[in-house]
């Protein structure tokens, strides 16, 4: 019952899922069966999941191939479309900041890392570049820090310098 524009993607993702199922099955086969194990064994459930995923993936592939052959649907939005590329680009940029936060937090500490994250994300999503971004981001980071550390008593990444 998939929408037509999704058909090509279904084919692609079906093939990827088949690969995931195979990989998971191979990894499940490497699990050690201990003497404490039962008849189902440590591999039983993962194997079942691998077969199930494989089956569903094949079903999806077959379904999309049938639709493609029978109806020859028009291609959906493609990556060549500049608007699509822009949207994915925006997402990748934000993702990069989030990853940067994870990498920086243990070094420069929570407050600074969160400030940078907020400031960068605000700028990236189109706020006017202005010096007030930094103090506003810092204020946000401090509020979060106060709620978690002061109010709830949860420690946040301390960093090497602070």
């Amino acid at each position: 019952m998939t929408e037509r524009t999704h058909t090509r993607r279904d084919l692609v993702s079906g093939i990827v899922m088949l690969g995931v199922a195979g990989l998971y099955w191979i990894e499940a086969g490497k699990l050690e069966i201990s003497f404490l194990d039962d008849e189902v064994t440590v591999r039983g459930f993962p194997n079942l999941l691998a077969y199930a995923l494989g089956l569903f993936a094949i079903a999806l592939i077959v379904q999309s191939v049938i639709v493609l052959v029978r109806h020859r649907p028009p291609a959906g939005e493609s990556l060549a479309d500049p608007e699509t590329r822009r949207r994915h680009g925006m997402a990748i940029g934000l993702l990069a900041f989030a990853v940067g936060y994870v990498l920086l937090a243990p070094i420069i500490g929570y407050v600074l890392a969160a400030t940078l994250l907020i400031a960068a994300a605000v700028w990236w999503q189109g706020a006017r570049l202005h010096w007030t971004i930094i103090p506003a981001a810092l204020a946000g980071a401090i509020v979060l820090w106060a709620v978690f550390v002061r109010l709830l008593g949860i420690q946040l990444p301390p960093g090497l310098w602070f």
Binding site: A98, A121, V122, W123, G140, A141, L144, P157
Partner: peptide, 23 residues
């Protein structure tokens, strides 16, 4: 929106850290 989304991102990543003190 840019402000809201950025603060939410920071809030969410902070909250997840708090689950288990784990980056």
């Amino acid at each position: 929106k840019p402000w809201l989304m950025s603060y939410i991102l920071a809030l969410v990543l902070t909250g997840v850290y708090a689950v288990d003190h784990s980056l």
